[in-house]
């Protein structure tokens, strides 16, 4: 399965990945609307970690042995058999946060939609290059 590879030596800490991820997962998919008109504002599923001059963008690694899938009591958190992507079926998520507690990387967030659900990187649906990779101005993220 293709994964997002992080080249932290080229991450410039601009956080455009976060912004583009948010837009991608917003209702409108349009940047100005997503930020200024949609409420609650969508959450980015990628996060730039920084210390000193080092930075890198972290998102779900779609672990082979994913504890979030293991620990999900409703079966919402699951792996797509074809693509291998770990994703959350929002219909079935009950917001128990077992996934958040078991994730070793802390990349699952609580998101307020009609109700509170777990939100995480879905590799933009698994079709083509995820938006964080495609829009990174310095090619610090690779999808391979």
């Amino acid at each position: 399965m293709k994964k997002i590879r992080i080249q932290e030596e080229f991450c410039i800490g601009c956080r455009l990945c976060e912004i583009n991820c948010l837009v991608k997962h917003s209702y409108s998919g349009k940047i100005i609307k997503a930020f200024r008109e949609e409420s609650p504002r969508a959450l980015p599923r990628i996060r730039v970690e920084e210390e000193g001059y080092l930075s890198f963008a972290l998102q779900c690694r779609h672990c082979e042995d994913a504890p979030c899938v293991e620990n999900c009591m409703s079966g919402a958190m699951q792996r797509d058999r074809e693509t291998g992507t770990v994703f959350c079926d929002e219909e079935r998520c009950v917001g128990c946060w077992m996934c958040i507690m078991s994730c070793p990387l802390g990349v699952i967030k609580r998101e307020q939609k009609t109700r509170r659900i777990a939100s995480k990187c879905d590799l933009c649906g698994g079709e083509g290059e995820p938006v964080c990779v495609a829009q990174c101005p310095n090619e610090a993220l690779l999808y391979e």
Binding site: G13, C14, R15, L16, I19, F35
Partner: peptide, 14 residues
């Protein structure tokens, strides 16, 4: 102001 989304990219890049 109509377009700025206060994303702070400019802040971080300058």
């Amino acid at each position: 102001k109509e377009r700025c989304i206060s994303c702070q990219v400019c802040v971080r890049q300058c």
